[in-house]
């Protein structure tokens, strides 16, 4: 539990962070809340030579209304501040609700939205939310900024499409308009553990039937997965169709087997939890 030696750089601004990344390349890691990176370093699974601390980059904190139907959340905004933010609560309650289930109070008071997403761990809760919301991430590098769709951002286990010299500056989510309901089923071994499987269901109701459904799956592949077959099977149908549709929730997934769950059991859980999440969201 003692990390290898590293150099420490405190970035005062995004530009300073980008400069440091450019200088150190893949020998550097960005330090946000540290709740994923530091345990890996203590176990010496990760041994970056340079840590670039974003903790003092104030411009990366906070939430604003972009005016185009979307909210922008600074990447260094802590989970607790996302949960409690009035704009998030009013316009994107699902993000506030799922964020409230991330880790435990200590994690939520240190961990950040950008750090959690950039870590690229499909067992964490926020990637599936961003996938279901069809949100985007703004990345900044030496050549300026670019906006990356959630579906393009997560590439593989702990791997994103960020370049070595880029950092996430913003997370953009649509304002939720209309009669949407949502529910996140997080299935864990102990309260503070990662999800064995998580299912976020969002349902837009119209005249008693489901106009649109979105299902994001946590920890069912190396990247967050949308249960698109389930979504399509429900569009335009009555909530009575949920049970049959949810039976296909594991289609197209590729879950791992580990000490907590076999792949087969994860697929089973995905089906059960998708049904439950949809039923709760459609209520």
């Amino acid at each position: 539990m003692i990390p290898a030696t590293f150099d420490y750089v405190r970035a005062g601004s995004v530009d300073e962070a980008v400069d440091a990344l450019k200088q150190h390349g893949d020998e550097a890691k960005l330090l946000a809340g540290g709740h994923s990176l530091l345990p890996l370093m203590k176990l010496r699974f990760a041994a970056p030579e340079v840590l670039i601390d974003l903790g003092r980059v104030e411009q990366l904190r906070g939430v604003c209304d972009l005016g185009d139907g979307r909210l922008a959340i600074g990447s260094m905004t802590r989970h607790i501040d996302v949960m409690d933010d009035p704009l998030v609560r009013e316009h994107c309650g699902v993000l506030a609700d799922v964020t409230a289930k991330v880790g435990d109070p200590q994690v939520r008071h240190r961990g950040t939205i950008g750090g959690a997403l950039a870590h690229g761990d499909a067992a964490s809760d926020l990637p599936a939310v961003l996938a279901a919301l069809e949100g985007t991430l703004v990345a900044q590098g030496p050549n300026g900024t670019r906006e990356i769709a959630a579906s393009d951002f997560f590439v593989d286990y702990l791997t994103t499409s960020l370049e070595d010299d880029e950092l996430v500056t913003e997370v953009r989510v649509p304002k939720i308009v209309g009669p949407w309901g949502w529910h996140y089923e997080k299935f864990t071994r102990v309260a503070q553990a990662w999800a064995i499987v998580g299912v976020l269901a969002m349902v837009k109701r119209s005249n008693g039937s489901i106009e649109e459904a979105r299902v994001g799956l946590t920890n069912m592949a190396t990247v967050p997965v949308r249960a698109s077959g389930v979504e399509q099977a429900l569009a335009g149908h009555s909530p009575d169709a949920i049970a049959d549709a949810a039976a296909n929730a594991a289609d197209g997934t590729n879950p791992s087997s580990d000490l907590s769950a076999s792949a087969e059991y994860r697929e089973h859980l995905a089906r059960v939890l998708t049904r439950r999440a949809l039923e709760a969201a459609a209520r």
């Binding site: 071994r189 102990v190 309260a191 503070q192 000490l259």
Partner: peptide
């Protein structure tokens, strides 16, 4: 990986 329960459990 070794699941020691906490008060919420």
């Amino acid at each position: 990986d070794y699941y020691v329960p906490g008060a919420p459990d």
